[in-house]
Design a protein around this nucleic acid. Sequence first.
DNA 1: TATTATAAATCGAAAATTTCGATCGTTTAC
DNA 2: GTAAACGATCGAAATTTTCGATTTATAATA
Lengths: 296, 296
Amino acid sequence: MELRQLKYFVRAAELLNFTQAADDLYITQSTLSHQIKELETSLNVLLFDRIGRRVKLTESGEIMLEYARRTIRQAEEAKQVLMDLNNLKTGKIIIGSTYGLVNLLLQSATEFNEEFPDIQIQIVLGSTSDLMQKIRSYEIDCMLSFMPSSEDNQLDVMRLFSANLSLILHTSHPWSKLKKITFQKIAELPLVLPSQSYSIRNFLDETLLKNNMQLKAKIEINDIHSLLDLVNSKKWCTILMDTSLFHFPELVAVPIESKNITREATITFPSGIYRKASLVFFQNLIMKKMVMHNLV
Amino acid sequence: MELRQLKYFVRAAELLNFTQAADDLYITQSTLSHQIKELETSLNVLLFDRIGRRVKLTESGEIMLEYARRTIRQAEEAKQVLMDLNNLKTGKIIIGSTYGLVNLLLQSATEFNEEFPDIQIQIVLGSTSDLMQKIRSYEIDCMLSFMPSSEDNQLDVMRLFSANLSLILHTSHPWSKLKKITFQKIAELPLVLPSQSYSIRNFLDETLLKNNMQLKAKIEINDIHSLLDLVNSKKWCTILMDTSLFHFPELVAVPIESKNITREATITFPSGIYRKASLVFFQNLIMKKMVMHNLV
DNA sequence: TATTATAAATCGAAAATTTCGATCGTTTAC
DNA sequence: GTAAACGATCGAAATTTTCGATTTATAATA
């Protein structure tokens, strides 16, 4: 058993397709096939069921996948600790985010880069559940998301700030000074809404359902920035979390009058494993930003 | 970085002598030298200080040693879990013991072998501190010892039974029916004592010191069984924990009247890591034996 | 049902890596 | 000052890994 073989195995187990996995690993399919077999021989166990031309993990394979990841992780942690020890500010951090928080993330990423110009920041957008799965398999270092405080003790979830479902208006709009607003009133306005691919949209739809309300969007769009551009043009309004307004000084958020319009933004790490220096810095950066914006 | 290199590194770090380590690993010194250098290159860090013809670990090396062991351990755990899953009752368990408990261990070993004839039992005798160090570096699977309940949360210590410092006599001796006896009285008897290499002897000496007492042994011997043979010949007495009497039906233990004559026998595992099926069986065996002998 | 496309296994050769044995250069011990 | 001990280095040998081509089996399609 060698780390190389474990890495090959993990990728093959993830893709369940030797050809693709081999491409991904920049080796040939024959090499992968051979090395998997070698690993199986050394463990004296079959890791894959070869059913015809397709493969699936055996029970042993499922278990081995977990241990293989842990072993690789342990080795990478060793390397990272040594790098931190030597104050080597190089490498990469991979940060997951839901669409609703990518705005916040991008700002922090810029500041991060000023401190660590040689550390690459890789951003992975996805749904909360996508990202949680990636955290578990160590594919991302941390994630930003709106999340119901989960009881999973494999995850280290920290609260960042509360966000309220709000009507987003241009300051020139007569209602922009309101302290709050009802769904009934909103129904009168020309609405642009984010498309279903955003979790905010699901949250809005659920909230409407609970309130026995309906809202029809005149326009749907799958890019928050473009959406806000539209609102900025004074012709439209939208509904977003009030914290999505970074960089639009002429827009205001009016909280909606209803129950359960609050969501908690969180940053999540896999728990119990070494947190590299750069990642700790990133975490502090994000949290400091929260304080600065009085969002806490 | 490969597991092979980590294994080479760990052995070299333990022996701090490449030539010896290479012998131990059944490779040549040149191979070891080369592979260590390869590892250092891949980590971009020096693991050893080469001072003249001698080597010592760098700070990075010390840290790496810990991570290397963890990584190797994780890989071996994977293998073990798969073996357990397939009900493969083969392999090896390595059990540490202090001299005072090896008697108990040997009995259990015999029973263990009846259940798992294909699992090799390797017994490592040593002092409590020796063994604790070996537990920490995963050299032994568990250990039997008398131990003051340690607060180390890296160790999983379980109590087996209490043992009292006792005078050991032949049943024919007039004092053999006594319920207890003082050190003053014992001083009148012809004593054989275990030599300083046994922890029981240290414990006895400390207890005497606390009681402002002295005892002179006529004979000292570094083998408990031979010592008991002498006592069995009716000419001698000795002082041991009362639980050391297995297999000598004609000997009795008379507890000594004094404070702090009790020690707790314990079985200790490294905590938080997978315990293979055979080891769990061994643990149950030992604990069941305790119940059977009413030692709990 | 025959045909085609897909995917893993297998085989032999090439490439790369690991290992070895011999030797070199220091350092330590006597 | 000499000999022994030890790690580094070098080139060659052995082993392992990788590759490309081919085979085999299966699923999809005509």
